[in-house]
Write a protein that binds this DNA or RNA. Structure first.
Lengths: 177, 177
DNA sequence: CGCTGTTTGTACCGATCGGTACAAACTTGG
DNA sequence: CCAAGTTTGTACCGATCGGTACAAACAGCG
């Protein structure tokens, strides 16, 4: 199943052929269509749901629920750094947002980002930012993370990603009220 | 030819089938393969080259050569805003960086971003930023633009893109000196 | 008009696409 | 150990993929 996710990440929705998926997972078509009767669309939807659940549990919920929001935010950066392998690993949700099966997964993609921004906004506000500032900052941070993945990949320089995260963290710290 | 570019933007490299391309351009396969003997790869390469040339002429060169770098920078934001249709239009180079024919176009993709960052860095430095700050800021700005496209698309809210550009401009202005 | 060279539409190629059918190979309860 | 149910490999389906062949349609020039 992680292998399945990796195939979609590396090749996008359209580029992930059943042959590739079959090879990457080691499962034949029979098994695949037994597990996912809905075919490729269901596979992608399932992967998306898993990703969403992971982010919800490991990032969004802590951001919203943490007693010390500052720690939750810096935990988020650490988790993001690890999850995206310093920018070597691509964000599947971002990939789907840009191309491929945009209409198919629009709702899931939207929810993923809406909740990320909202959770970060919540945490930022509780560190002392006023409402307007924290909303804008949350949006900026999420966008910057996505953009840093693009740039790090394009330049083939993971350091770009790491640097971007560090810059964001220091901006948040100095902007804090 | 702009139609060709749009097909690649909307469907990515793998998703842009010859049937789609043919319909979008109004050209039959015969004409397409007469114009681009190298097939789809050559079409994409040609589109990429055109995009690169456009950015070079309209953004990079002005950034490097302008007498008043502040104006060149704000012109850049205006051009970006128009070119990406307030985030409704996707950056083909970013799309290629994330998925699809990454290996095929890696060099072109890399060059596009390297030169963008370098040109912006040049202009920023001439507004008074010291070397380290302007290099970091240039990288941040380009990444933020890419990320804002992703986010605006995902949320289906072009305003996100516009807002991100405005925030960047004001950050540059206040950080100057 | 006829001739020459380029631009185009169309039929076709093998390969591969996503998806289905189904019978062997398994596990499992008795 | 056998019957019932589940998991798997494989052969196959029509559609479409990127790409080629080639002959009609076309242009410019005499």
């Amino acid at each position: 199943m992680p292998a399945l996710a990796e195939v979609f990440r590396e090749h996008g929705y359209e580029g992930a052929s059943l042959a590739l998926i079959s090879r990457a997972t080691g499962l034949g078509k029979g098994s695949l269509y037994h597990l996912f009767p809905g075919g490729k669309a269901e596979m992608a939807a399932c992967v998306l749901a898993e990703i969403d659940a992971w982010f919800e549990a490991n990032l969004y919920r802590p951001l919203r629920a943490a007693e010390r929001p500052e720690t939750a935010i810096s935990d988020m950066f650490e988790a993001v750094q690890t999850y995206f392998r310093s920018g070597r690993r691509v964000c599947l949700v971002g990939v789907l947002a840009l191309g491929g099966g945009r209409d198919l997964f629009a709702e899931a993609v939207r929810g993923y980002f809406v909740r990320w921004v909202a959770a970060l906004d919540d945490a930022l506000r509780r560190t002392g930012h006023d409402a307007a500032a924290s909303a804008a900052l949350a949006e900026e941070v999420v966008a910057q993370i996505q953009g840093a993945i693009v740039l790090a990949r394009a330049l083939d320089e993971p350091a770009v990603f790491t640097r971007a995260l560090a810059a964001l963290q220091s901006r948040i710290a100095t902007a804090a009220g």
